[in-house]
């Protein structure tokens, strides 16, 4: 019994960073902007979160982590929405920028390129069965129905989706296409920054270089697997979280070399995408920059 509870608890902890970023991915892609830079936004979230918490406590840490994610997202929006450059190229550049700047600043503030000292997280909340739990875990799962509600029932959500499906029609009806694309991208940066801060403050208690381990990309895969919906993304994230927590148990048993265990999330991502992509439907104008006709 204890084993099962512990497995569930650890699965949830592993799920949260993927889920938060995956929901961010839903916002940006529903607005028609592909964001490969989510990984980088998680990286800056994990670094700036730790930095903020180190100097001013966890609340400021979360604020700074989310702001850093949004700042990076703003660059993505300026490049890919305003200047209509290739969204993948911009995202790749942001991942490099996040890696380089975090390493640079880590040397400046922590006097070490790859780790921070221990940093404080939020006070845990008590939950039946699971016991002490990070409030961010609760928040992540509340965000799922909340996002579904936003996308299905609110004016904001419907307009956001219209911009990703048919920007020309939306524009004709008076929807400010650029504004909604910016909103989608910035929200994804905010959530990826939150996910990164969760990793350093709640999950590990310190910033470690490379602690995101490609979770930003896995979150994108989870969103595709979840067919661009919040609930679908949640189930996919739970699958990835469960696989990861299960793989830790296998490492402890020492049967398979741990390098192969480390491959599991990535192999699973490939397998899931290979099995599912043909059956999924992205927003019709996903990844295509919107350009008003020049006259």
């Amino acid at each position: 019994m204890d084993f099962i509870v512990e497995l569930i608890a650890s699965s949830l902890r592993m799920t949260v960073p993927i889920l938060l970023t995956g929901i961010g991915a839903v916002y940006t892609e529903r607005a028609g902007v592909v964001n490969i830079g989510l990984e980088g936004m998680m990286i800056v979230g994990s670094f700036w979160g730790a930095l903020g918490s180190f100097y001013f406590g966890p609340y400021v840490g979360f604020l700074m982590g989310m702001s850093a994610g949004m700042a990076l997202a703003l660059i993505h929006a300026v490049a890919s929405v305003t200047f209509r450059v290739n969204q993948i190229v911009s995202g790749v550049a942001l991942n490099i920028l996040a890696f380089g700047s975090s390493r640079f600043l880590s040397q400046v503030f922590f006097k070490m390129a790859t780790t921070s000292p221990h940093v404080k997280g939020l006070r845990p909340v008590k939950i039946p069965v699971l016991g002490d739990t990070s409030p961010i875990i609760v928040l992540a799962f509340i965000l799922v129905p909340f996002t579904a509600f936003i996308l299905e029932k609110t004016v904001f959500g419907l307009r956001l989706k219209s911009v990703g499906e048919n920007p020309l029609a939306a524009d004709t009806l008076g929807v400010n296409v650029f504004k909604f694309k910016y909103a989608g991208v910035l929200l994804s940066g905010l959530l990826a920054g939150l996910a990164g801060t969760y990793l350093s403050l709640e999950h590990t208690g310190m910033y470690v270089e490379g602690m995101t381990q490609g979770k930003g990309f896995i979150a994108l895969a989870a969103m595709i697997f979840g067919n661009w919906t919040p609930y679908g993304t949640m189930w996919a994230s739970l699958l990835f979280g469960f696989a990861e927590s299960l793989s830790f148990r296998v490492v402890e048993s020492n049967v398979i070399p741990y390098q192969f265990i480390k491959m599991i999330p990535y192999l699973l991502t490939l397998a899931v995408l290979a099995g599912v992509v043909r059956k999924s439907t992205p927003p019709a104008a996903d990844g295509i920059p919107y350009e008003r006709e020049m006259h």
């Binding site: 490049a79 490099i96 920028l97 380089g100 400046v108 020049m294």
Partner: peptide, 29 residues
């Protein structure tokens, strides 16, 4: 820190694609 050039390289990618786009549009016009 050496990582200054990593930042510089990442910024180069972003600036080059933006400038290519602007130049490309201008040439089209």
């Amino acid at each position: 820190p050496m990582d200054t050039i990593v930042i510089l390289q990442a910024l180069m990618i972003i600036t080059i694609v933006i400038i290519n786009k602007i130049v490309g549009d201008y040439i089209k016009r």
